[in-house]
């Protein structure tokens, strides 16, 4: 299955990126381009919704880490929405659960963001 990537920005200036399909060595460049494009447009607070991601490999992890570096250069943030155990397992194996904020839903992430303000 190909990768579908779309985004919208909430009224609290959070850009939610919906990702659907498989993120692997073939499709990861599409996600990378989206993240770069958003940062170039001045969107520095990103939330990647991975609930419809069916497969994620280390290439996809690398793209997310690259995106995190980019937004942090602008004092921004990149967090994730993910409840799928098979995807979360990859983050745990690589130790990236300590790097990314991972939430159960977009609403949870937004709530957390409000608390931190």
């Amino acid at each position: 299955m190909d990768l579908k990537v779309s985004d919208y920005t909430t009224d609290d200036d959070l850009t939610v990126i919906n990702v659907e399909g498989e993120i692997d060595v073939y499709t990861a460049p599409k996600l990378r381009e989206k993240l770069i494009d958003l940062v170039n447009k001045g969107k520095y607070h990103l939330l990647v919704d991975m609930e419809k991601v069916e497969f994620l490999d280390s290439t996809g992890l690398g793209v997310l880490v690259g995106g995190l570096k980019r937004v942090r250069a602008h004092d921004g943030s990149l967090e994730l929405v993910c409840t799928q155990e098979r995807i979360l397992k990859i983050f745990r194996i690589t130790g990236l659960t300590k790097v990314f904020g991972i939430f159960d839903s977009v609403d949870d992430a937004r709530e957390n963001r409000k608390k931190q303000k």
Binding site: V25, A28, R32, S58, T59, L61, G62, V63, V65, T94
Partner: peptide
């Protein structure tokens, strides 16, 4: 960058 340069 695609590989994260981290040996993930």
């Amino acid at each position: 960058e695609l590989n994260g340069n981290l040996n993930l």
